[in-house]
Design a binder for these strands. Structure first.
Lengths: 332, 332
DNA sequence: CAACATCGAGCACGCCCATGC
DNA sequence: AGCATGGGCGTGCTCGATGTT
């Protein structure tokens, strides 16, 4: 009985050339005559040849792969980046892997870094949206081919290639939109951030200041809906609050509920804006005004940067999508 | 200059044993004296040795890995399975990979199958919730270590190991809950299914029939919110409709919006129930009554089945979570 | 002398690269 | 310019050699 999978030497024999020539065809080296190349290609087709990726990785010293290191795979932004990386990697014929960092505890970070140190992981994309991710980013050894997807502006003090979406402008736009509607000021419920002054917060503050509006204290929330709900309750209790810029759409969901529980209508009594534009946002009741973020594009851009094919992917800038959750304040 | 990464032979030299003994320690073979083992372990620690996964895969003929083949990575159920597989795989020290099947077109399916045929992919988990996934499942060559996550009941006529969540009972519970509230019958907006009579639909129909209630025609919808919205519009136009069992929470979102647009209140005029219990469901306004589905558990179970450690993971059965979107019909 | 525990030598895995023709 | 040959990548496995009971 023959070997299950044909290998490069079988193809060589079938094509009447050396295995090295087959290798050249595989890695499309220029030094192969067209007709020779065709013979090899035919032989591959005939034998149903598929190169062994493990062997290739071993020989090359690194796999033709991309693995994403992330603290989460289901939250909208994270899942979007993952989707973009997978898509771009697949189109380039790369193996795509995934590794989650359970937390920012030293042991978890170390394990993740060791994991991607293995050559079979290929290039790595670190999603550094949180302490766990940025911990990995900082601990990453030099010389390892990688790029990080970070918050707007990148991580200060970290000397790594970083790519990001910049929603500062859109945050300002959203704030101005609310102000333009007649709200005296806009409150902000912030999601966790790795930087002092996030783009969302920065754009919001700048818009408020340049309009001469008061800058309320930021209300912090976590990634979980529960904490966002508490933040919403705090704001709902204050009848002076008529407009809230929420850190993301999930936050907006919980804030809206808290408002409802306090008997305050959206957008009748309070206007709310989110960030992300999750697929369901347009189908909310009322439909959510939010800032569209192209996380999949960010993921694709990371892979493109790693492939350094010269052409850097243009990222769609985050943009405000006005729907029904924002309206003029109720006149009294 | 020395080689960057120490290898098994360096460890052997440092420990004063043969490379084979080191290999035995690595694969914890019983035939190594405790003190010898300890010496090897110390040498590994000293040299910061990390086994090369590509080399191991090459020698073994298959990588210690698990890769999930799926048509999607962001929809709730798919992302949940992915999360479960990643978590379980990571805990077992496996490399975890991911490959999406772009569509159920023959070429896409073939490419995906070829991809996972490579030994470096290790064991395979196929998410067969749709035509693309089940296409891959059917095309999978025998002998490849795999298991599929499918809809309840598995795919008829496919001779593969399949694991699934069975929400038939919960679907019946949801229907009875609605009937018990006083609704004369319950309508159903179905999401795509690979089987004739899905568990959701089957449980719904059985509950209706055993209660002697009329069984309305099923309204089909796709995975996208837009089609669910159209389905909702059709139902919203019929004033006789007072209760709707939606294929999933996303569907419920769009149906609820359509109801609202038609001036029908939830749950005042119409009660709705979803499936999934997405994180935001509890924070809807009104909070959504839905059936909790443990997709991450399904993913973990798939990995456990592949590892065949004897202990099959017990799956949490889907269960109805009653919240605010269901109420007695308005008396007239 | 048999049976077992422990360890080592050599080769195979499938590909890529450097060298020489 | 184009092709053939040999060595190396880092493991795990088969087989056999020791020493021990």
């Amino acid at each position: 009985m023959k070997r299950a999978a044909p290998q490069i030497r079988d193809v060589a024999a079938a094509a009447g050339v050396s295995h090295q020539t087959v290798s050249r065809v595989l890695n499309d080296s220029p030094n192969v005559r067209p007709d020779t190349r065709q013979q090899v290609l035919d032989a591959m087709e005939r034998l149903q040849y598929r190169p062994n990726r493990a062997a290739r990785a071993l020989g090359l010293g690194r796999a033709k792969a991309v693995t994403v290191v992330t603290a989460n795979t289901t939250l909208y932004g994270y899942a979007g980046v993952l989707q973009g990386v997978e898509e771009a990697g697949r189109l380039l014929g790369l193996t795509v892997g995934i590794r989650v960092v359970a937390s920012d505890a030293a042991a978890d970070v170390r394990n993740a870094v060791e994991y991607v140190g293995d050559p079979s992981c290929g290039n790595v994309v670190v999603v550094a949206f949180d302490p766990a991710g940025s911990g990995v980013l900082r601990a990453m050894p030099d010389g390892l081919p990688m790029v990080a997807a970070t918050e707007a502006g990148g991580l200060p003090g970290v000397d790594r290639r970083m790519i990001f979406l910049d929603e500062r402008q859109a945050a300002a736009d959203a704030t101005r939109h609310l102000l333009g509607l007649g709200h005296r000021t806009v409150h902000h419920v912030a999601i966790p951030s790795e930087v002092r002054d996030s783009a969302r917060q920065g754009g919001w503050r700048a818009a408020l200041e340049s309009a001469g509006a008061a800058v309320p204290e930021v209300v912090p929330a976590g990634w979980d809906l529960r904490s966002a709900h508490r933040a919403g309750q705090a704001l709902a209790a204050d009848r002076a609050v008529t407009a809230i810029l929420c850190g993301n759409d999930d936050t907006a969901l919980a804030v809206r509920r808290a408002l409802h529980e306090a008997g305050r209508d959206v957008p009748g009594d309070v206007s709310i804006v989110g960030f992300d534009d999750v697929p369901g946002a347009a189908f909310w009741t009322p439909a959510l005004t939010t800032v569209r973020m192209d996380f999949a594009g960010l993921g694709r851009a990371c892979v493109a940067a790693l492939a350094d094919d010269g052409d850097p992917v243009r990222l769609d800038p985050p943009s405000l999508v006005i729907r029904e959750s924002t309206a003029p304040p109720r006149s009294r």
